[in-house]
Design a binder for these strands. Structure first.
Lengths: 350, 350
DNA sequence: GTGAAAGCGCTAACAA
DNA sequence: TTGTTAGCGCTTTCAC
């Protein structure tokens, strides 16, 4: 294999000093156009490419950002949500010529250790957390280290204003969606949430409660279920809910993929959607429109979440001393065909 | 912010030479347990973490592998296939303490340029290509550079044996699936393939042709359609196919996600699956079992594809001079409920 | 506008 | 078993 060509080789070939070559790479204005051309010529001729690690070492900056995903041991990760956020992140990162480094840990401990390595080993300049957990160890660590990071989702605790994040107004979205169902005449509305450790689940819950409260409808514990697993979760939830003496006529589901499970189980039980049960869920991932019937869901603009998170992070890296920022990505309810007025149905009480 | 603690600081604190500390990090057997302990103590005390870039520079190895995805501009990337391969890759990578670096390019040109940077800039030790395209520029480049890389899918051309890859026997899978449909009595079998630039599509096609040929059934061009887009693609394909004077009674679909589109459109046309049309597709991504009815599909063991690709790559990096290897991941048809015997010509019974 | 030289933090010969 | 020292390839003062 041919030897690597370094800055020195180029310098020799162009008859200049290594430092000059370095300046040409950085396109320093203090170098004359003439020598720039000569040097560039030599670089081309020799097939020179700057060594990334050498630059990073001298520079103390890597031009790469770390992406930390929730523990991929469970199936959470299979959610098309992730490719889509990453697509958003990628897009911004590519614009500013930053690279992406991915966490590989499968358990919480592994991830934590990995993040420490990224940070202390100076492997990345900043980190994006693709999730927000209640009292998350990784987030706390990053915060204490004052390492640049942004979160997709909102921090649960009081440091809200000291942490840079991008989020949807999940509380509001959930509230609206509940109100919508209420307007359609539903009174027995179930809530199928994700893992309660995630802040988004908490927010969804609160929105749901508030809407029911405002409408003067009593909260039924039986109508509220949480499930971690996306596929089985949805299915189990349906079994539980439909076994109740007064089964719900509408369901709010935390995640589109879960909705597939919900609809699947419902159809197995020969319940029709939306005739027997109305459903609204969240996210609007690509395949959401491909359910039969296509699902009504809240588009949270996943791509934008990723893009903006990256944008904020880049800012933070360049200007570490400006305060933390928070960005809210607007959501939008996409009405498709899993919701319907409750008219004929006599099964409702009160 | 506190100064970074380096190997020298540790050396001083432990009263040894920097090189000794370095050897302790590498856990060299030539260092006595006693000094190892002392040094480790000092490391802990000072909160030492090795600088990744410095190591890489001195080492000429980065312990990270690059993942190159197809251009994420189009929706291909949203396929849950990708999180799942990456999960497989992650898993192996984490075992051997390798990091993952992700391509961010959106177009073919951008990706090509990026790969060059990764390779020439020594940013990664090896690369995994998550797709195999006919006559792919990136693959050709890597091949010429003799840079360690593995492909998920098979190279199209004659260099088959000189390139390390992991693949399914897509030809065979497609042939089997076609034969199965034939056995169920179907004669009008359509094929809905992906982008013909991808080798997998070619292989699927060939398997389908071969099975029909063996059965003495003439190939109808009208029954063969290709679509790039997963969602719209499936739907458009159905429109075309069902408009034929003799519409197919069975369909082989390149991808589970596409099948969702296919089923969606079919249900819109009030065609029932499997009563009116049987469907088999490929991949068995997580949500495949959540279609209504759950789809029959070929499980290609996506996770294993990723895991094995990473495994091969690590091997290649450590032993660049052993020849190229090829690994075939077995597939398995998962019979669910979208296939059925064709009994009466008129969709009947039940 | 350009060059010389001192690092960035670590590894690996070569010595001892 | 451990220390000395010369790099790895680049950036960046400080001179000129």
């Amino acid at each position: 294999m041919r030897m690597t060509v370094t800055i020195k080789d180029v310098a020799k070939a162009a008859n200049v000093a290594p430092s000059t070559v370095s300046r040409v790479i950085a396109n320093s204005p203090r170098i004359s156009e003439r020598t720039k051309e000569i040097v560039r010529g030599a670089m081309k001729e020799l097939g020179y490419h700057p060594n990334f690690n050498a630059r990073s070492l001298a520079n103390k900056s890597t031009n790469t950002i770390g992406i930390v995903m929730p523990n991929s041991a469970n199936k959470t990760f299979q959610n098309p949500f992730f490719p889509e956020v990453i697509r958003g992140i990628s897009s911004k990162a590519h614009q500013v010529e930053y690279g992406l480094y991915l966490s590989t840990g499968q358990s919480e401990d592994e991830i934590f250790e990995e993040v420490q390595h990224m940070v202390q080993g100076k492997r990345v300049d900043g980190i994006i957390l693709l999730y927000s957990r209640v009292d998350d160890r990784v987030m706390n660590y990053l915060y204490e280290q004052k390492f640049p990071f942004t979160v997709i989702g909102r921090p649960y605790d009081v440091r809200k204003r000291e942490i840079t994040y991008v989020n949807n107004d999940n509380y509001k979205a959930s509230k609206t969606v509940t109100e919508y169902l209420l307007l359609l005449g539903h009174k027995n509305i179930a809530f199928i949430g994700g893992n309660l450790d995630f802040v988004v689940t908490v927010d969804h819950m609160e929105g749901y409660r508030k809407a029911l409260y405002n409408a003067g409808i009593e909260l039924k514990d039986d109508y509220i279920v949480f499930h971690e697993e996306l596929q089985e979760g949805g299915q189990e939830a349906v079994i539980d809910l439909m076994s109740l003496s007064e089964p719900p006529t509408a369901m709010i589901v935390a995640d589109d993929i879960m909705t597939f499970g919900v609809m699947r189980m419902l159809s197995e039980m020969e319940m029709r959607v939306p005739d027997d049960v109305s459903i609204i869920s969240f996210n609007n991932v690509m395949i959401s429109e491909l359910s039969s019937p296509p699902m009504t869901t809240v588009d949270i603009h996943i791509y934008n979440l990723g893009y903006e998170a990256c944008n904020l992070l880049i800012d933070l890296i360049h200007h570490p001393d400006t305060g933390a920022k928070q960005v809210l990505i607007p959501h939008k309810m996409i009405k498709r065909q899993t919701t319907q007025k409750i008219i004929g149905k006599i099964s409702s009480s009160q």
